[in-house]
């Protein structure tokens, strides 16, 4: 079941595109600063064999983040992508992200709209970051794009993704942003090279290849993601980004 958008969420269109995202209304936010966390998870057909593990990974990230001393200052947006993008939920505080709401979130099938998912995820950070910054919130961000394959479906291209990432770095609304491209099950050297090149050309902060999709590997990924989120949130106010090793 997706987490349903409630009365506390507002939907915002991304530029002139057909993409949109939702975020919690400013008046419903209790803290004065937030780290925006964006996760885009690949649920194309090739992920079917380890969809449970991907789901478990997302739940583990949410669980770990809720234990973070910065939990009250984190907002999470989750998107899944195959042929199309699906916003599981928009930017919302972790208290409104119960683990059970991620059951069966990875409904797999179709192709891989990797560029669309990544670009719009980054753009949503920029747009919502501006909304918050205009209302005197301090904001930084971290995004994770988790995929097991190359793009074969997007309307955007790698240049659009690079432009979106550069736009965030230039803007003053989001103090700093860490972006991590995670390649799961990248035993194929060609795919690994493709993702490595994409991370470099688009300007991701970090590329993280994971050779297999075993439960233990994805559990480690969950730990890495949650620790990265905590570290970036701790860096809010310093103007710097904070990355950690896998």
């Amino acid at each position: 079941m997706p987490v349903l958008t409630s009365k506390t969420m507002v939907t915002q269109r991304l530029g002139a595109s057909n993409f949109s995202f939702s975020g919690t209304r400013v008046g419903d936010l209790g803290a004065t600063e937030y780290t925006l966390v964006g996760i885009a998870a690949d649920v194309s057909a090739s992920v079917t064999s380890f969809s449970k593990e991907i789901e478990g990974c997302i739940k583990e990230v949410v669980k770990a983040c809720r234990r973070s001393p910065r939990a009250d200052n984190l907002m999470l947006r989750l998107v899944t992508f195959s042929d199309r993008l699906r916003e599981v939920h928009g930017f919302r505080p972790l208290t409104q992200c119960p683990e059970a709401s991620y059951d069966k979130v990875a409904r797999c099938g179709g192709m891989t709209a990797l560029y669309d998912a990544s670009t719009t995820l980054v753009e949503s950070i920029g747009a919502y970051g501006k909304t918050l910054s205009d209302a005197d919130f301090d904001v930084n961000a971290i995004v994770f794009v988790i995929t097991d394959g190359a793009d074969n479906k997007s309307s955007y291209d790698a240049k659009a993704l690079a432009k979106a990432l550069a736009g965030i770095r230039r803007s003053e609304h989001v103090e700093s942003m860490v972006s991590v491209l995670v390649g799961v099950n990248v035993a194929d050297p060609q795919l690994d090279q493709y993702l490595k090149d994409l991370a470099r050309d688009a300007g991701f902060t970090q590329y993280l290849p994971i050779g297999d999709a075993k439960a233990s590997s994805l559990a480690r990924l969950a730990q890495f993601v949650s620790r990265s989120i905590s570290a970036q949130s701790m860096a809010l106010g310093s103007g710097a980004s904070q990355t950690i090793g896998f």
Binding site: V26, T32, A135
Partner: peptide
């Protein structure tokens, strides 16, 4: 001066003013 007078508007304004 409160650009978005919603929620914790004064707390946000105060923190940004100081920081």
């Amino acid at each position: 001066c409160f650009p978005r007078p919603q929620g914790r508007f004064l707390a946000r304004r105060g923190r940004r003013f100081l920081r």
